[in-house]
């Protein structure tokens, strides 16, 4: 019996995994960033497949549109030659591949079958899912507006972490601007 959900999972997961491996083995830093872009897009595809539309769209907006552009910007600002290549010796490759395979098998053995999942929670149709509203309500602990679907359990508050994150972002904004600002050379004519 052919099922769509597992088929889509295998398709997206294979592509994502291959792109992640390509990120690691490519020697050129911008190519590596491009493969990372495909990995991130694949991850957002996995989120959409899991029914987490809002998180998937956030992933696309912030990671793909923001963070990756920042990373490539950093590459351009710190590049000395036209296309940078990173040299990694054969011994390092061998060690890291062995270590990676070992770590992967440990993680898989550790997780495989150890989490009982009583049932899959009902997946909303993206057409009328109230995910954004539910998340906003859980973030602020408030319910307001026409689209309002109460969370099943007691009310969940993440207001304090939410505020901390927003202050954190402000600090990051100022700090990054301070660190990266153009400095006058000492002794240079003002």
């Amino acid at each position: 019996m052919f099922e769509l959900q597992p088929f889509m999972f295998w398709l997206i997961a294979t592509l994502t995994g291959l792109c992640a491996i390509a990120t690691v083995i490519s020697q050129n830093i911008v190519r590596s960033a491009t493969w990372l872009l495909f990995t991130l897009a694949g991850t957002s595809g996995i989120f959409f497949l899991l029914g987490a539309d809002f998180v998937g769209a956030i992933q696309l907006l912030i990671y793909v549109g923001g963070t990756m552009v920042l990373v490539v910007f950093g590459v351009m600002l710190t590049a000395q030659g036209p296309f940078i290549n990173m040299k990694t010796s054969g011994a390092e490759w061998a060690i890291s591949i062995v270590a990676g395979i070992l770590l992967f098998s440990v993680l898989c053995f550790g997780t495989w079958g150890h989490f009982s999942a009583p049932q899959a929670t009902a997946m909303d149709d993206p057409k009328d899912s109230h995910q954004a509203a539910t998340l906003a309500q859980a973030m602020t602990g408030a319910g307001y507006g026409p689209i309002y679907k109460p969370v099943q359990r007691e009310r969940i508050h993440y207001l304090l972490p939410f505020e901390i994150v927003s202050v954190h972002l402000l600090v990051v904004l100022i700090g990054a601007a301070y660190l990266a600002r153009a400095k006058r050379r000492k002794g240079a004519a003002t």
């Binding site: 769209a57 696309l60 907006l61 552009v69 490539v72 993206p126 057409k127 009328d128």
Partner: peptide
């Protein structure tokens, strides 16, 4: 093609990934 509850947000998100192609 696909009606989504967060359609507007999805549009902004995918259009923001267009810039990466231009940079490449």
């Amino acid at each position: 093609a696909r009606e989504m509850n967060i359609g507007l947000f999805f549009m902004l998100a995918v259009m923001s990934s267009e810039v990466f192609g231009i940079i490449l």
